[in-house]
């Protein structure tokens, strides 16, 4: 082909779809998202508020609802910090040092994600239930973990176990250890290095993990359901309270309480977007494969 001919052809190069195809694809994508995400999200609030504010408030002011909210907050207030400390420790060991069996350790940390929520609850019943390994010992000492608050806290820790660690490990691996080594060789102590060098570098990743961890901790249903025993006003979390109300055909109350969780989801998405935006605009060290 002669050169001028090629130039003429170049003008007709199609690197974009036609307007019609573009419009069709956008319509298909948005319809799918509206059908599966938009309508359900709208429906939660519509069902909650459709019969008026007074019924909505009545459902939220019910003492059982309050004790469910309280228990959910307690479980998250223990599970999130516990997994935060673990996540930082695990990421420090894995990202800043070379040792054998590291990849096995990373796989093991991800394990709880591969376990069905129901199975997560079951394994704690097998350990601490009346017929479990520690069941007789617990009964002797008049301790109750299963069908009680400690069991709920334990399974919540289990299901949210990997969230913070798996955010931090790749982030800290990508950052490497040069800055920490520089700080130490200039005479900083271990804790000084950690607080003044590492924490400022990982703060957005840390926050990101905490947000996701908290959302799951407050919303977990299957695992908590197995160990809770469903005692109203005692061992019900918000999701379990929603289930009870729904099964009693008290739909307005069920969706009113559910709307709290839907609000939590929206706040989570908003916080997540803000953190992503901040991390990006700071040019903050998102993993960029330096060490790979």
């Amino acid at each position: 082909m002669s050169l001028p001919q090629q130039l003429i052809n170049n003008r007709k190069i199609t690197t974009h779809e036609s307007k019609v195809v573009t419009l069709v694809l956008i319509t298909v994508a948005l319809s799918y998202l509206v059908l599966f995400l938009g309508i359900p999200l709208f429906a939660v609030f519509y069902e909650a508020l459709g019969k008026g504010w007074s019924l909505y408030w009545a459902a939220l002011q019910d003492p059982d609802a309050w004790s469910a909210i309280e228990l959910t907050l307690i479980a998250a207030a223990i599970a999130v910090p516990a997994n935060l400390v673990f996540g930082v420790a695990a990421a420090w060991a894995i990202a800043k040092f070379e040792f054998r069996g590291k990849s096995v350790l990373i796989t093991l940390i991800d394990l709880p994600f591969a376990v069905s929520p129901v199975v997560s609850g079951l394994i704690y019943v097998l350990l601490f239930g009346a017929q479990g390994w520690f069941g007789p010992w617990l009964q002797e000492h008049d301790l109750k973990l299963i069908f009680a608050v400690p069991g709920i806290v334990l399974v919540t820790i289990f299901v949210t176990f990997p969230f913070i660690a798996r955010e931090l490990i790749p982030l800290m691996q990508a950052q490497g250890k040069d800055e920490e080594e520089a700080a130490v060789s200039l005479g900083a102590s271990g804790w000084q290095t950690f607080w003044r060098v590492t924490v400022p570098n990982i703060k957005w990743g840390l926050l990101y993990g905490v947000i996701l961890c908290n959302a799951r901790a407050m919303g977990e249903f299957g695992a908590v359901s197995v160990v809770s025993g469903h005692i109203r006003g005692m061992t019900n979390t918000i999701p379990l309270h929603v289930e009870i109300l729904y099964n009693e055909y008290n739909f307005v109350a069920a969706f009113s309480v559910a709307s709290l969780l839907a609000l939590l989801a929206l706040v989570t998405l908003l916080a997540k977007s803000i953190v992503e935006f901040k991390a990006k605009s700071n040019g903050d060290r998102l993993p960029h494969g330096e060490t790979e």
Partner: peptide, 15 residues
């Protein structure tokens, strides 16, 4: 798009 990650499963179920 991340809503299903954030919305508790029980709420999705009843809705």
């Amino acid at each position: 798009v991340d809503l299903p990650f954030a919305l508790p499963t029980a709420v999705a179920g009843i809705t």
